[in-house]
Amino acid sequence: MRPFTYETATDAPEAVRAAAASADAHVRAPVQLIGGGTTLLDLMKLDVMRPERLVDVTPLYARFGRIEATPQGLRLGALVRMSEAAEHPAIARDYPVVAQSLAQAASAQLRNMARLGGNVLQRTRCNYFRDPSYSQCNKRDPGSGCAAIDGFNRLHAVLGTSEACIAHYSGDFAQALIALDATVEVLGRQGPRAIAFADLHRLPGRTPHIETTLEPGELITGFVVPAGQWTRRSTYLKVRDRESYAFALASAAVALDMDGDTVRHARIALGGVATVPWRAREAEALLAGRTLDEAAATEAGRAAFAHAVVHQNNAYKVPLGQATVARALLAAQAMRL
């Protein structure tokens, strides 16, 4: 690991000022906020991330560590631990997709350490990104190329890819947030602002090293999930190589607004298959006003992957992802509330 200085943030504006010293917010920005450190320290040990200065934001827990469930919705502080949100009774009851996406992520130890703010900014598990002995990685070293496109790309994305990058977004919680139309609250040098969660992550395009729309130094302070009758009929289905403690090969976050067996609105997000947290709008449109049965669910699965682009080793993600969407829809429909 390269040398760095470590400081703790005692108030939020101070953390923002310190982190804003970075010229931009890309993967290798020299100043990094640190929450649980489970992404950051791992990538620092691998020499992928090389910050010169770490600003520990966990002392801000007193201010940004609260969970509030109100009739308007759910407010989650950015320093809430993954385990705290996963175990919260009101979240488990009223927003099961949120609780399940967190409970099925990582391990109990990691969920105790990791915070929600850091969670949504976790970095891809692309093996070429994580191993600097491969010189080609546009995310690490802009302009160097992409080793994954002609490499072993079994884990990589089939949606939202570009010619510069096919790295998959590997987190789970973000799928629940994007499906439920959540908002992310941030604090920057100009004060607080709110961003639709769907606008937080940027498609790789030609600049895969710039992963979010955050300005340098901007601190995520929390998430707001609006209430709605669909949040209770929601579920997270995660398919992985082993039953527990593994990243998604394909996952679906689903929330259904139903009128009997007819779909008023289905909210569907996909994980493990796309470069960013992914909303499957085509599948949602196809289901609106239809009776939800196996045939409709299967069609929705197909629609979700209509624009998939596959590579050497990841073509299996298309049928796997289609089946995951279909199964998640039927599971949400079958929930007894």
Binding site: Y6, G37, T38, L41, D56, T58, S83, L110, N112
Partner: peptide, 27 residues
Amino acid sequence: CDQGQCGACTVHVDGRRALACLTLAVA
């Protein structure tokens, strides 16, 4: 593993299980 993957370094921090290999001593 020293990478947060195996759990061999599990300790309790304020009563919660955590991975000592992904925790900075200063923190």
